[in-house]
Nucleic acid binder design. Sequence first.
DNA 1: AGCAGAACGGAATAAACCGTTCCGTTTGGC
DNA 2: GCCAAACGGAACGGTTTATTCCGTTCTGCT
Lengths: 227, 227
Amino acid sequence: MSTPGQPKDPAAYAGPLSGRRAQAARNDHAILSAARTVFLQNPHAPVAAVATAAGVGISALYRRYPGKEQLLQKLCADGLRTFIAVAERHSDAQPDPFTALKEFVRGIVDADVHALTVKLAGTFTPTPELGELSARAGTLAQEIFNRAFEAGALRADADANDIPMVFEQLTAIRLRDEARTAALRHRYLDVLMDGLRSSQGAEALSAPPPSSQELGERWIAPDAIMD
Amino acid sequence: MSTPGQPKDPAAYAGPLSGRRAQAARNDHAILSAARTVFLQNPHAPVAAVATAAGVGISALYRRYPGKEQLLQKLCADGLRTFIAVAERHSDAQPDPFTALKEFVRGIVDADVHALTVKLAGTFTPTPELGELSARAGTLAQEIFNRAFEAGALRADADANDIPMVFEQLTAIRLRDEARTAALRHRYLDVLMDGLRSSQGAEALSAPPPSSQELGERWIAPDAIMD
DNA sequence: AGCAGAACGGAATAAACCGTTCCGTTTGGC
DNA sequence: GCCAAACGGAACGGTTTATTCCGTTCTGCT
């Protein structure tokens, strides 16, 4: 090959591109990022809203994805992969298993990944890949919980399935301002983890934790009476 | 007047009615109850879904309400009134102010009233009456919180505005089965209240509570980018 | 016994809304 | 300079939804 400006393959070189090519690369990111924000706020948002938020036309989006469903699947898969990455980062030997658990949860909450995987589910048909990723994510979370539990850092009636429920509750906190949302979630993460911690004077929790089946049922869409 | 079967005014006599009149009275309730269930699950559900769930035709609904908006307003106002009733019930002198607070929260959660007032907001234009009811509800909740706080039952950095956030988080828990949903909410109510309780070894919460303004902003609809 | 009309079910209507396609234009790369 | 990749946004077709309309049923009263 000679020495012309840039390589043909856009993925081969991620540095600063010029002109049209750079624009396209920036749009790649802008669309994905806008989609994340928009669908996170409303899983049923129209595709046009994503394009508007990304500051591009609709065709820029349809050039990259065959349809809405594929965009959602991509979003979900990315979310799951992020989840796994965060979990693996906190799986490493850490002096205090309770701190490891808490920081893992904080990592997931900060990445705002739970909504991507659960709230989005039901709005598209799941792929096998998604199932595998999801299973792996669950296993990792369970392991981190178990280490803390076996170390005696948690109350006796705490359960691994409480962790997804903590995600669920913290994800429900959402303000206009993104930074403030994160801060508030940290506040109630502190409260919830404090409540899950082992303490002498606490009486037993008044109901059993969710079963794995109950947790799984949230993935299938409610086709009954609703929009 | 003579002695014929039933009085003219349907509201004047609430006892067992016969035939058509009874049917109408039952439908009154069926429609409201169905609307509650349906809109609780999906605030954007179509009116027809309510009629179907109530087991009546659409005309039975439109005979009672001029339109969807009025039905939603009615639902919201009823929810707020229930909230106030529950709060007043737990305002009475109770030996332990912490127990009073916790049972108040449990009462609200069991009545599933928070979703009716916040999640529904933004789907209809609020009336002045709704504003007044909401203000009164807030005051009552604050009072119950204050009593527990001043009794030293709560951690020092707890705040009255944490209570609506607790509602928000518990309301996010929703399974197919209604009874199981309630049980699970009780479980995490225990956890959250345990975390809010005063305990010696706890470090400070990592972020300040929501301001009243931030809480209020949730009432106005996100008209920006979304469906 | 018979009638006026309250109450109802559900089809019909008209107006959104939404995903996707199409087409004309721009512009960087060669 | 020319070609085509990349884009913006209007246009299209299908679906959904709030609301209205109409024909039917059956009660409460005379």
